[in-house]
Design a protein around this nucleic acid. Structure first.
Lengths: 176, 176
DNA sequence: AGAATGATTAGAATTCTATCAAATCACTAT
DNA sequence: ATAGTGATTTGATAGAATTCTAATCATTCT
């Protein structure tokens, strides 16, 4: 990723594009390019050295002059190769979830039930993890477990059912 | 050229690349991206709007959220298409010549014979244009013509012969 | 060896850009 | 309607990058 970004940065400059276009037509040297672009040799040299260190151009001395040439293979890549990260991206959903949880939980307690729907669901699911699958709870048990996280166990219990996270039949509850 | 440069500039930023990679995986919205990248929504919005105006991403509202998506076709181009100027490049040689001539001629007079070999040849060729092809000149004529440009006609005459621009046999000279 | 020329480097000035906080806008849901 | 939520805009700031001048380096030619 780092190298790709560097390449893109180097190409994203008007002066360097001009220089590259000149070199694509024919090899040239610092002073000549400077003359053509009406810039100082120092400036041209600055750009050429940058591009050289990234492998975009090469240079070799010929008598008085440092002849620069383009490494044309560099440009064979399609653009989408350059913008893609090398390492597989971390799971967004996971990361987002973690962020939300760390925001609404402090010292193991739920500080506030999020009003935003998506965030609320995440928080409720987190609490619901305390309930085992394939068994039932009576209301007192449910309230006790939720109470570890938040005082208002009624609201949370109701919300979990509204979200379809928990289910109720008569007096018994269970994890869905 | 302008648009290509704009595209390159937009791609040459680490944050924007991160955003693009997220969007390439799945459409997303400002706050979620901000959360994932640990940046403020304002910053993400700033980047998305920039990319949107360049046609890199699109957005559409869905309930609470502005869902952003990538315009994938943009990245199909190969890189070398992006770095090439649209208009054909001006002839370098011509432009360089013009620069050199305007530097060493003032008011139609040669101010100084360039010491640099390439430049000297350009200047000499310019003066040599005053000699017609396919006829001969005696030394007096040659000196007179050169003298219009510079006092030291001897040096210039000698140089023109050294460069093979003029030729001499006994007392007669001619343009090569 | 020394003079000349092109290339490079160092330092300074200027411009451009990304970022954030705060205010405002646009839309949704109660 | 009105409160709430996400998106956008504005203004300010800090940081990076380009360009120039002047000085230095490296090479060639006399």
């Amino acid at each position: 990723m780092k190298e790709k970004l560097e390449l893109l940065k180097l190409l994203a400059d008007e002066t360097r594009l001009y220089i590259l276009n000149i070199l694509l037509r024919e090899d040239s040297y610092v002073e000549k390019i400077a003359c053509e672009l009406s810039l100082t040799p120092a400036t041209i040299c600055y750009h050429l050295k940058k591009m050289e260190s990234a492998g975009i151009v090469n240079c070799s001395r010929s008598q008085f002059y440092m002849i620069y040439s383009v490494n044309r293979e560099i440009f064979d890549k399609p653009l989408y190769e350059l913008i893609q990260k090398d390492e597989p991206v971390l799971d967004t959903e996971e990361k987002y979830k973690k962020e939300v949880l760390s925001h609404f939980f402090r010292y193991g307690k739920l500080t506030q039930l999020p009003t935003q729907r998506k965030k609320r669901e995440i928080v409720l699911l987190e609490i619901a993890n305390q309930f085992e699958q394939n068994r039932t709870y009576d209301e007192k048990e449910v309230n006790a477990i939720i109470h570890q996280y938040h005082e208002d166990h009624c609201t949370i219990r109701r919300e979990m059912i509204a979200f379809g996270i928990m289910a109720r039949e008569k007096e018994t509850y269970w994890r869905v």
